[in-house]
Measured scan of single mutants.
Amino acid sequence: SIVTKIISIVQERQNMDDGAPVKTRDIADAAGLSIYQVRLYLEQLHDVGVLEKVNAGKGVPGLWRLL
């Protein structure tokens, strides 16, 4: 499923980069989806406690990390 793919992308990127959070844009590119589509999935995963959003604010790139 797309959700499983997104989780594995975040996991893979974090492992490659010493646990650093992953940008929404990088996840979207790797999943082959638009940034808006991916954001909806990321928000859902956040709501159920799978991911945390590391930063927030208007015009700030979203950074995500697995919990």
Results as ranks from 00 to 15, higher is better:
Ile6Met: 03
Glu52Met: 08
Ser8Pro: 00
Glu43Trp: 08
Asp47Asn: 13
Ala56Tyr: 09
Glu52Ile: 08
Met16Trp: 07
Ile7Gly: 00
Asp26Thr: 09
Asp29Lys: 13
Leu66Gln: 03
Gln37Leu: 13
Lys58Arg: 09
Asp26Gln: 05
Leu67Thr: 15
Val3Tyr: 15
Val38His: 00
Asn55Ser: 12
Asp18Ser: 14
Gln37Glu: 13
Asn55Gln: 10
Leu67Asp: 04
Gln37Thr: 13
Gln44Phe: 15
Ile6Val: 04
Thr24His: 01
Gly49Pro: 05
Thr24Asp: 13
Gln11Val: 08
Gly57His: 08
Trp64Met: 00
Leu66Tyr: 11
Arg65Trp: 11
Lys5Phe: 09
Leu66Cys: 05
Pro21Leu: 06
Val60Cys: 11
Lys23Ala: 14
Pro21Ala: 15
Asp26Pro: 02
Ile6Asp: 00
Val22Ser: 05
Asn55Arg: 08
Val54Ala: 04
Ile9Met: 04
Leu51Thr: 01
Leu40Ile: 14
Val48Met: 15
Asp17Asn: 15
Lys23Met: 09
Ile27Arg: 01
Ile7Gln: 03
Gly57Met: 05
Glu12Asp: 09
Tyr36Glu: 14
Gln14Phe: 05
Pro21Asn: 04
Ile27Pro: 01
Glu52Pro: 01
Asp18Pro: 11
Leu42Asp: 00
Gly57Asp: 09
Ser1Leu: 10
Met16Pro: 03
Arg13Glu: 04
Glu12Trp: 13
Tyr41Trp: 09
Gln44Cys: 14
Thr4Lys: 14
Gln14Ala: 07
Val54Met: 05
Gln44His: 15
Lys58Met: 08
Glu52Leu: 05
Gln37Tyr: 07
Gly32Cys: 06
Val10Pro: 00
Ala20Asn: 11
Glu12Pro: 00
Lys23His: 09
Gln37Phe: 10
Ala31Glu: 01
Trp64Phe: 01
Ala20Gly: 09
Leu67Val: 14
Tyr36Trp: 12
Val3Cys: 12
Gly57Lys: 10
Leu66Phe: 09
Gly59Ile: 04
Leu51Val: 09
His46Phe: 10
Thr4Trp: 13
Val38Asp: 00
Ala31Leu: 15
Val38Cys: 14
Ala31Trp: 03
Ala56Glu: 10
Leu63Cys: 08
Lys58Gly: 10
His46Lys: 13
Gln44Met: 15
Ala30Val: 05
Ile6Tyr: 01
Ile27Ala: 00
Leu45Gln: 00
Gly59Cys: 08
Gly32Trp: 03
Leu45Asp: 01
Gly59Thr: 06
Thr24Leu: 03
Ile35Cys: 07
Arg25Asn: 09
Leu45Trp: 01
Val54Lys: 02
Arg13Trp: 07
Tyr41Arg: 02
Glu52Lys: 05
Ala30His: 06
Glu12Met: 12
Met16Thr: 08
Pro61Lys: 10
Val10Glu: 00
Thr4Cys: 14
Val60Met: 14
Asp47Ala: 15
Ile27Thr: 01
Ala28Met: 03
Gly62Met: 12
Ala56Trp: 07
Leu42Trp: 03
Ile7Ser: 01
Met16Tyr: 09
Val38Leu: 05
Gly32Lys: 08
Gly19Ile: 03
Ala56Thr: 12
Val10His: 00
Glu43Leu: 07
Ile9Glu: 01
